[in-house]
């Protein structure tokens, strides 16, 4: 377990969301053990009950990863997820969890860099100190990504 790395749950769409993550893993990235990845058929499946369950189970942040706008594998599930995101963030605030602990990233296929950048900045935002949260400091081009979290 990476002791300094915050506990984060990622709910990832099994299509667009999974591809950049898969590419990153193939390039040699090791996600910190404190980052838990849960693949769902569509990000619109992830609703407030699941997100609260993740926080209840100890997550310090929840990252939602889905398809880009206008590029949903299904029919607008990403748009539904986007609309729900706002409501879920508002509910978390009522509960007492800052909005920044929930993030939505809608990335493109084949873009592991953007995925990693998002994950890094999310971990940094939660940890409150950027140096503790770099999960991929190496070069993806050389397949030498490394974990410093």
């Amino acid at each position: 377990m990476d002791r300094d790395c915050p506990e984060v749950t990622i709910f990832s769409c099994a299509y667009c969301g999974a591809v950049p993550r898969e590419l990153a893993l193939r390039a040699g990235l090791r996600l910190p053990a404190s980052v838990h990845l849960i693949e769902v058929p569509c990000l619109s499946r992830v609703q407030a009950d699941l997100i609260l369950s993740a926080f209840e189970a100890g997550a310090q942040g929840v990252l939602l990863v889905g398809c880009e706008d206008h590029n949903c594998h299904h029919q607008g599930g990403n748009q539904r997820a986007k609309r729900r995101f706002a409501a879920m963030a508002a509910l978390l605030e009522q509960v007492g969890i800052p909005r920044t602990r929930l993030s939505l990233w809608q990335g493109g296929l084949g873009d592991p860099r953007a995925f990693l950048a998002e994950l890094n900045s999310f971990l940094a935002a939660i940890a409150g100190s950027p140096h503790q949260s770099q999960v991929a400091g190496g070069s993806l081009d050389q397949g030498a990504a490394e974990t410093t979290c």
Partner: peptide
């Protein structure tokens, strides 16, 4: 959902 929200809160 409400039960979970009340627990976390």
């Amino acid at each position: 959902t409400l039960a979970a929200a009340l627990r976390v809160s």
